[in-house]
Nucleic acid binder design. Structure first.
Lengths: 231, 231
DNA sequence: GCGCGGCTTTGATCTAGGTTAAATGTAGCC
DNA sequence: GGCTACATTTAACCTAGATCAAAGCCGCGC
């Protein structure tokens, strides 16, 4: 109805992201002018390995998985991207094509922010550069943690780590429930194991009384006990 | 003898790095004023996991390994840093302590550039921000490639990949020699396998006629054949 | 309610790569 | 040269986790 409505919402959404926080109206207008919404249905591909990079992507709602496909067609999920998170920034600065694919895990809305808008803003606003550097650093840090987990931790430790990380801001009063936000096969791949093995580990932890599994909901009766569990 | 000599050399060294290229004399002076040389003998620790980050490190000569240590004391090398390369930038932007340790693999000289000098320069020079973003992006990209290798490639493929990557700018005229720049155990750890397994793979490749091993020198008679080798 | 197609679980079996241990090099260093 | 200390190799054996195959389960459309 009102043509300006989407435009206004767009800027309000951007303003709430760490990357664009502290920007004034004019700055946001410039970014918004180079931003395009993109709706993807569950299962739909957002970008493919090899595609050129023309900007970066923000998830507004829904869920997106990033991953690679091996020569034999095996798929490995590197990251599950949630609302408010973004991907593809690094590629903008490298002029390199995507090395991962992105696919919607559920019906999702994304925003595509054109490279040029970002570059212009970087040249104009040192604060924006700093936030961009922070964002990339956080990503890098997370990836190093992932490498540590893949190379130095057992599957069981990775599963426990995942469950504990999913709590985030939730209460730490001990009887907690974690809701698995994606299918178990996707989570298994993200943790670098087969769905079968993931299932077995979940049940082992269940038998040990550390968790209770009800479909996609995992109840943790005693957080500290799960934190300290070995073998 | 001449007190100014080291200062001048310092700026000349910095000016040759991608990160500081295109900087004018005054800019370089400001950076150099907050840069301290650091000499580390082979085996000496440069920083430990948990240390606070006060700036980033540049390798002038020598070689530095970055890695983590598991709770059981097992060590995993994440990266081997060579002259002209740097590490620890991301941590500056996160105000987080080191999650890896750094140790000299051979007698090395490093430079420590203080956080403040970087931050001042970022606020002053958008070009520097861009180069910093490129640098971090490159690092991120490399890590994603590593994750792909760790999760989707066999040990043998990782070894072949490593040998081919070590060629870099070297001639691609087919009889090539690669010199392993670090001990085999360090390289094995970098490739996420045991020294024993690394040794076995090298000999398998040798038996298949793909490489010839002479101590730390590996001769590759036919590059294309090594590139295309499977199982 | 019924049946179809995709997830998830379970069990049996297999294997890449790790572990252990001992032999063999090799590099400094007196 | 000969010694010591460490790096590398070799061989035998073992295990975490993958693969394969067959049920269950569960949500969804009709």
């Amino acid at each position: 109805m009102n043509r300006r409505q989407p435009q206004i919402k767009l800027q309000a959404f951007l303003a709430n992201l760490p990357m664009f926080s502290e920007m004034n109206g004019a700055d946001l207008d410039r970014i918004a002018a180079h931003t395009l919404p993109h709706y993807a249905e569950k299962g739909q591909s957002i970008c493919q390995c090899g595609d050129p990079c023309t900007g970066f992507h923000l998830v507004v709602y829904g869920q997106v998985k990033l991953g690679f496909t091996s020569a034999q067609g095996i798929e490995k999920v590197v990251e599950i991207v949630r609302p408010g998170q973004s991907f593809g920034e690094a590629l903008m600065f490298l002029d390199a094509p995507y090395i991962v694919f992105a696919q919607a895990l559920s019906d999702s809305m994304l925003l595509h922010v054109a490279k040029q808008a970002v570059f212009d803003e970087l040249a104009r606003d040192p604060g924006f550069s700093r936030r961009m550097l922070s964002g990339l650093s956080r990503r890098l840090h997370g990836l190093v943690r992932d490498v540590e987990a893949y190379t130095l931790r057992s599957s069981q430790e990775r599963v426990i780590g995942y469950l504990l990380a999913e709590l985030r801001d939730d209460a730490d009063a001990s009887p907690v429930e974690v809701h698995l936000s994606a299918g178990k096969s996707v989570i298994a791949s993200r943790l670098n194991m087969t769905p079968e093995h993931f299932s077995r580990i979940l049940h082992e932890l269940g038998n040990a009384g550390l968790i209770e599994i009800h479909g996609r909901t995992v109840r943790i009766p005693d957080l500290e006990r799960l934190r300290g569990y070995r073998v």
